[in-house]
Amino acid sequence: MQAESSRAWGLAHHFDNFEQQREASYLGMWVFLVTEIMFFGGLFTAYVVYRSANARAFALGSKELDITLGAFNTAVLIGSSLTMALAVWAAQQGKRKQIALFLVLTILLGGVFLGVKVVEYRAKIDHHLLPGPDFHFPVTEVDEILGVQEGNVEMFFNLYFAMTGLHALHMIIGIGVLLVMVVLALRGSFSRKNHNLVECMGLYWHFVDIVWIFLFPLLYLLGRNI
C-alpha cells in the first residue's frame, strides 16, 4: 500500500491510481446523465401523449414560435459544444491557457443562448401566450371545426415553458460550474493526468446540447407544413 505522503496530489485516498479515479468519475458522470435522460423523459412523455391527441393545436402553437431565433440558438449551442469539446481536448494535453480560453468561449456562447431565450420569452409574454389567467389565443372557426380548443394550445405552451425552462435551468447551472472551472484552470488545477472535472463537465454540457437538439424540432419545427 502506498504511504499517504508519497501519493500524487489530486489522487483521493481510496483509489489505487489515477486511472481508477478517472474511470470512476467518468462512469459516475454517465450514470448521472442517464438520470437526466429520465428526468427530461417525463416531460417528453407528456409531450408525446398530448401531441398524439392534439397535433393541430400543437402545430398552431408551434407557429407562434420564432423559427429564426430558434435556429440561431441551435447553431449557437452546437458551437458551444464544439468549444467545450476543444476545452477537453486542451485539458487532455495539459494546455492550461487553452483550457481557460475554450471554457470562456463556451460560457459566452451559453450566455448568448440564454439572452436570446429571454427575448423569446418576453415576446411570448407580451402576446399573452404565457399559461395562466392571462393566456389568450384566438382560435379560428376552421380550426374549431377541426377540434382545436384554446386550452389545447395552452397545453403546448405549458410544455414549451416547462421544457425550455428546465433546459435553461440546466444551462444556468452549467455556466456557474464553468465559471468556477475557468478559475481552477488558470490556477493550474488541471493536469494531463488529472482533468476529470473538465471531462465530466464536457459530458454534461454536450448532454444539455442534445436535449436542445430534440427540443428544437419538437417545439419549433413540427407542424410548420400545415
Binding site: 462512469l27 450514470v31 442517464v34 429520465m38 417525463g42 417528453f44 412523455t45
Partner: peptide, 14 residues
C-alpha cells in the same frame, strides 16, 4: 452499455 440502457428505459417509459 450505460448510454444504451438510458435510451432503452426512455423507450420503455414512452
Amino acid at each position: 452499455l450505460v448510454v444504451v440502457s438510458g435510451l432503452v428505459w426512455l423507450v420503455i417509459l414512452i
